[in-house]
Each structure stands twice: as C-alpha cells, then as structure tokens.
Design a protein around this nucleic acid. Structure first.
Lengths: 334, 334
DNA sequence: TTGTATGCGTTATCAC
DNA sequence: GTGATAACGCATACAA
C-alpha cells in the first residue's frame, strides 16, 4: 500500500479509502490511485485487513466424510455463501470426537466468522460452547444433540422412515426389515425408531439388522437376509439407511441371483444421480442436502441466533422400481 | 497474550516463547505460563501470527464441481495435508474461467501457502503467473495446459482410452463408439484421441458422439445410438467419458429394454462405490483420484518446483460385466 | 478533500 | 533466563 501511495503521490489513508470506497475522493486522485494499483500489481493483504477489522471472511465447515451426502451439503453452503464474498475451509474427521475437537480449536484460532458442524458420535456441546468465543456463530447440521446449545438443521428422519413403512405396507409386504448402524447418531436412531414404530402401528413384522455404516456392513447384513430366507423367514422389503450399506447389500443380492423389486423390495437413503441408472431404478428417500447447506449459512448469518432451535427439513420419497413398483421413471427423447 | 502474561507475571515475549518452544524458559515460569493459558482460556490468534510471520497454514483448492471425482481428490489432499497442520479452503467454479480468475485473486489476497487448481476451459497460464506472487506455489491437476508454467498431475487418459479399445477388440467388437464432450479440456481430448487412434490402428469402425458433459448429454447421446441401430448401424461397444454422461446413457438403454453387456457393451470413466451395485456391474476406467490429490500436495511442499513438469498417473481398468465379460466380481460371505 | 498517527496480536530483535 | 519494543499491512480517529 505504501508503494501504491508513493506511486500515486498520496497517503496510504487515501489508498485505503479508494480501495474501500469509504470516503469521498476527488476524481483526479482516485484515477491516479487506481492507475498506481494497476501498475504496481497491488493485491490487498486480507490477513492484515482481518487483523485490523476483526472480521473474517472465512467460514469453517466440518463434514463427517466425503460421502456424496456431505458434498451435496458443501455445494449448498458454497452457493449460499456466494455473493457474500465468503469462502470456507472444509475438513472431515470421521466419527471421531477428538479429531473434531482439534479441528474446532484450529478454526477458533483462525477467528473464523462461523462454524458449521456435523456433531459426531461423542460430541460434547458444553465443551464446544466453552471453546468457541461467544461472537463466533455455530450451526449444527445432519444430527441433533443434547443439550441444545446451538441451532440445528436436520432432516425429518423419523417421518421419512415412517413414510417408507407406509409405502411398503401399501405393497402388501408384511415382513419388513431395516439395515441400520449402531452409531449414537440421531439420524440413524430416528430412522430406526420411525421404522419400527410405524411397523408396529400397522401390525407388521419388523426386523432390525445392525451393522457397520459402510459397504462391507451392507454386504454382511445382506448375507444375513439371504440366510434367514433359507431358514424360512420371508423378509419381503428392506430399508437400508445409507448409500454405502445400500450398494453393498445390492451387490450381494444380485450376485445371489435375486431380482431387486421382485425377490426383495429395497429402498434406501440419499438419492443421487446414479440411482436412476440402476436396473431397476432405486426407490430412495431424498434428503434435501443442498438446502440443508443453504439453511446452515442463513442461520449463520442471522443476527438473532435461535439457540437450540431445530429445523427438520422434509424429505422426499423418490419412488422408482426397487420397491416393487412398476418403475414410473420415464425417459422420453426430448 | 497480554492477559496471559499478566496472569503469569511475565512478559508477552516469554508467553510467545513458551507457546512456540523457541527459546529456553525455566521450568517454573513455563509452568506458570501454561497454567495462565489454561485459566484464561487463551487461544492464539492465528491471523496475527500469520501477519507477522508471513507464513500461512492454508492451501487453496479449486475444483470444477462436486463430481465424486473431485471430492476424491479432496480426500487425497486432506490426507496428505494432515500432520503438516495445514487446512484448505475449497471452491468450485464450473467451466468458467472468469470465476476461476476471481477465485485466484481471492486466494492470493489471503496470502495462501499454495494453490491447487484444475484449469478450466479458457485457462490463461500466463495471466495466472502474473497474478500469483512468485513465492506462492501453484500446482495444476486433472488437465494439462499450454504454456507449461506450472507442474501438473493428471491421469494418462490417452493410454486409458487405448486400453479400453484393446479390451473391446478382444471381445470381437468391430464397431465401437465414444461419447465425449466438446470442451477444450485435455482430459476429454486425450480420451477421444486415444480411442480413435487405437481403433484406427486396429482397423475398427469408430464413431464419436459429441454431447454435453452431464446426464442430459448422456441421454441425448444414447438416443442417437438407439436411433442409429434402427438405421442398421450396429454399434456394439461404447465408452462414455464421464460418470454423469454414463448414468444418463444407461438409463436410456435400460428403459429401451436393452441389456447392458449383451445388447450393448458399455465402459465408463471414474469407478465409484455404486458401480459394483449395478446389474451388471460396470467396467470402468479408474482414475487414481485420491493419489492425484496426494501428489498435488507433495509437489506443493517440494522445494524444487519442477516448472512445467507433467506427471501422468496410470489408470486402472476395472473389468466387470457391462463390457460383455462374464462379470468376474465375486462376493463371498466372509 | 486529504494526511498523520495509532493499534489490531503476534514474532523477533535487541538489550539486560 | 527474561523483558521492552519495533515491526507485519492494514483501517480509522483525528487533524488540517
């Protein structure tokens, strides 16, 4: 800035004001300053600006992993941040509370404008409130935690699971199952609770298969289903609670020669572009992941922070063929 | 820091040195300082530190979009950065050079330690070299550009495409096609060139279908294939050059009643978890996306920057059923 | 309309 | 082994 000031024959204050448009500058000097900026190839040092103003233009975003669900959330966050001139740093921690804590400290040290976090298994809200300075906004997403010290944006997982049960029941299935993980995570727990709850209400037989939250877990669970059918248990329909477990399970069923939608009805969570390319296309609960990201940003920007408020976004049931419906997905030449 | 110094009865200099371990401090005072840090809940201001030292612990990462390929690269970058205590800010721009330029300026303004970029259509390397200060490292990935002012990590797309042609030829197919996009991007151009080149060498009939690089584009292209068969052109095998176009095309073939691997052989680019859940599982060119991310970081950290050096990572042909092979994917209970 | 001077929270230089 | 203090590059209060 000093160089620019010298080149333009003005003071650094004037340069600053030209840069920020923060006070009247005569047309002539403004021209000279702008020319000096161009000729010197000046680039403002955001670090110094941030130190002086105390206002960061960086938001910290935590994701559990790079599952397409979370990258969709990122897309939403990026879109919502666009225009505000704010960027974000992203980091994943897996289901590891200690790593999340370290991440938190790094973000606080960088004095970020706000933090968007997916609380992992073991999340300690009080610890977080203690670490994060009161002027730093925190928004949680995807999972709900106690005590409710921060605003949260999640999906209405309970209703979503209940809706699937109703759809299964509409098909006439009376023996249904859910593949879920045992993590202490509200999303999983709500999906499981809603599924079992509604099945009982309808007098259906319900089986819960607990497994790891990845493809290997899905394969394991699928083998159990295969096995149980040999033993006479006629599981007709299955909800798989995330996309990794789902693809794992599908591989097993298909390599066993089962026809999806006929030999077994299947539905899953998190609709993505590849779901419609399956044969048959997959019936999926679609979370509004991008919207979730956008809402996080909105809450972050809001001046009146609703502490502990939970917004549960509605999900959308995308009905295709894997649940046994005659695949209504129509592709016509356009 | 002043508070901590006062609480410990020492100077800020001592606090700083305790924090950084940058000079000998007597055990007693060190204890007192550490206690003071704890009791005051002090968190070092990284902004000020960065301003003073001029050494950022932030890397800027650009991705074209949130396609799983790029998020895999992110995963690799994160892993490689781990341990170095470096985080990254990520931003997508689509195939928009102007947006990429703005992003670049923002990253330079934040004085980041380095930049990892996927050059988009219209990329002007000289302009970039002019904007980025000489002490900021720049590494390009996924695409190659001229002039070669920066080191680049890409996939060996030419060989990958040639390999697919050989595999198709091994099946006995003599009429093969490639669905490609018209973007001025080296990856696409090399895939197309390798495919056509090798087909000619083997005396095969080769068709190039140009379309948009998304699902809609894939569907359009597939309709052309459907149409051409009605006209007597017997296209037997198809390479689709990205995952979005691929799923679009597959949907159309399946809704037309074609059996993948029998009525038409299909192979694609970028293997992901869902590819093995398809029926039949998909034969795919697997790019080493995570490795690509890791290599970007390694090059970024290296002291001797190989300006203009290109490293082309080998791809891996994942052979399943969609190319007409008897799907060798075996899933056994473990 | 413009300039001077102070301080943001660190690190680093110099002195003791 | 420790402390005072000058910068880092900017924004801004206060003068002119």
């Amino acid at each position: 800035m000093k160089d620019v000031a010298r080149a333009a024959g003005v003071s650094v204050a004037t340069v600053s004001h030209v840069l920020n448009g923060t006070r009247n500058v005569s047309h002539a000097t403004r021209e000279r300053v702008e020319e000096a900026i161009r000729s010197t190839g000046y680039s403002r040092n955001e670090i110094a600006r941030e130190l002086k103003t105390g206002a960061s233009d960086l938001v910290g975003v935590h994701i559990v992993d790079y599952n397409p669900f979370y990258t969709d959330v990122l897309r939403g966050i990026e879109r919502a941040l666009e225009g505000a001139g704010i960027r974000f740093v992203v980091a994943s921690t897996g289901e590891n509370w200690r790593r999340q804590l370290e991440l938190l400290e790094a973000m606080v040290a960088r004095r970020m404008r706000g933090l968007i976090l997916a609380p992992v298994d073991g999340f300690d809200a009080e610890r977080v409130a203690q670490i994060v300075p009161p002027d730093t906004r925190v928004v949680l997403y995807d999972r709900e935690v106690q005590p409710p010290l921060f605003p949260s944006i999640t999906s209405d997982n309970l209703s979503a699971a209940r809706e699937i049960v109703d759809h299964f029941a509409g098909h006439g299935y009376r023996n249904i199952g859910i593949i879920a993980s045992g993590e202490h995570i509200s999303s999983m727990q709500h999906r499981r609770a809603g599924f079992v709850q509604r099945a009982r209400e309808l007098g259906l037989n319900v089986y819960v298969i607990e497994t790891e939250s990845n493809e290997e877990g899905g394969r394991h669970a699928a083998y159990q289903v295969l096995e149980s059918r040999r033993n006479g248990t006629a599981l007709e329909a299955l909800l798989v609670t995330n996309n990794l477990m789902l693809t794992g399970a599908l591989s097993v069923f298909q390599s066993a020669g089962w026809k999806i939608g006929a030999d077994i009805a299947v539905a899953g969570f998190d609709h993505h572009f590849w779901c419609d390319a399956m044969a048959p296309p997959l019936t999926m609960v679609k979370q509004r992941a991008e919207l979730m990201g956008e809402r996080c940003v909105e809450w972050l920007m809001k001046s009146d922070i609703g502490v502990g408020v939970i917004e549960r976004l509605p999900t959308e049931l995308v009905i295709r063929g894997s649940c046994g419906c005659q695949s209504p997905l129509q592709l016509n030449p356009s």
